[in-house]
C-alpha cells in the first residue's frame, strides 16, 4: 500500500562547519519529527561522519533516514548524494576524502566540525577541511554515485552560488539526473520557467537547514510503499505508481 512520506533530504548537522552547534543528531531529529518529517537525510558537506548518529537518533523516533552527503565537485557545484545503506555512504565518503585537498579546517574562518557517536555523544571534531572542492567533475561524481546504486540530486539549482545551473549554465542532458532541488524559498513552477533545461526533470525542495528553526514542514511529499532509496528512485522516475509532489510557496 502506498503512503505519504513528507521528506526533508537536505539537512546539515553540526559537522558542517557552517551549521549551528545546536544541530546535534538528537536535536535535529527531534525538530524534524515535530515538523512532520517522515523521511530525513542528513547531508553534510563532503562527509557522512554523523550519519550513523542521526540514524540511531531517528530510529527511536520512527523517522526513516536516507544516508547521504552533499558533495562539492571541482566546478564548485553542490550535489546531494543519497544511498541505500550506511556502508555505501561511508565507502563514498572514503572516495571523497581521497579527492579532497589534504588541508586542516580553520575553525576561526569556517566554524567547528563536530562529530557524534551512535549514542549521540559528542566525541570531538573532524580535523580535515570539509569546505573545499573535490577533484570529481559533475559527471564523475554522478557515475561514482550510480556505481554505488545511489541517487544524485543537484542542490539548490535556482541559486547563483554553488549550484549546477549557476556554475555550469544549464543541466547537461547527458547527465541523466532524475531530479533537481530548488531552494526552500523558491517556487518550483517559476524556477522551471526560468531554466528551460529543467523541463524534463522532477523538482523537489528541501530545507538545506543549517539551524534548527530552518527545518520546517516539508514541502516535498513522496508517495511510497516504504521509506527506502529504491522507492524514492521509483518516485523520482514516476514508476509503479510512486510519485513525488511539491507544495507551492506558503502565502506570506
Amino acid at each position: 500500500m502506498l503512503r505519504e512520506f513528507p521528506a526533508d533530504l537536505h539537512v546539515h548537522s553540526a559537522l558542517s562547519p557552517c551549521a549551528a552547534d545546536e544541530m546535534t543528531p538528537e536535536a535535529l531529529v527531534r525538530r524534524a519529527r515535530s515538523q512532520g518529517v517522515a523521511l530525513l537525510a542528513v547531508t553534510d558537506h563532503n562527509s557522512a561522519a554523523n550519519v550513523a548518529a542521526v540514524m540511531a537518533a531517528a530510529h527511536a523516533r520512527q523517522v526513516a533516514v536516507v544516508p547521504g552527503v552533499e558533495l562539492q565537485t571541482r566546478e564548485d557545484v553542490h550535489l546531494l548524494c543519497l544511498f541505500g545503506e550506511l556502508e555505501t555512504v561511508l565507502d563514498w565518503q572514503d572516495a571523497i576524502y581521497r579527492a579532497l585537498p589534504a588541508r586542516k579546517n580553520r575553525e576561526e574562518l569556517f566554524g567547528p566540525q563536530w562529530l557524534y557517536d551512535v549514542a549521540g555523544r559528542l566525541i570531538g571534531k573532524l580535523d580535515r577541511l570539509l569546505l573545499a572542492a573535490t577533484s570529481f567533475s559533475v559527471e564523475q561524481a554522478v557515475a561514482e554515485v550510480r556505481a554505488r546504486e545511489g541517487v544524485v540530486i543537484p542542490s539548490h539549482v535556482d541559486r547563483p552560488a554553488y549550484s549546477l545551473l549557476g556554475h555550469l549554465g544549464f543541466l547537461p542532458p547527458e547527465l541523466g539526473v532524475e531530479a533537481c532541488e530548488v531552494s526552500r524559498r523558491a517556487d518550483p513552477a517559476e524556477v522551471r520557467q526560468r531554466f528551460p533545461s529543467l523541463k524534463h526533470v522532477e523538482l523537489v525542495s528541501f530545507s538545506d537547514a543549517h539551524r534548527l528553526d530552518e527545518i520546517d514542514r516539508p514541502r516535498t511529499v513522496f508517495l511510497l510503499e516504504q521509506p527506502s532509496l529504491a522507492e524514492i528512485k521509483k518516485a523520482l522516475e514516476g514508476r509503479d505508481g510512486r510519485r513525488v509532489t511539491v507544495r507551492g510557496l506558503p502565502v506570506n
Partner: peptide
C-alpha cells in the same frame, strides 16, 4: 578555468 563540456554550448 572551467573545463566542463557546457562551456562549448555557452
Amino acid at each position: 578555468l572551467q573545463t566542463h563540456q557546457n562551456i562549448v554550448a555557452v
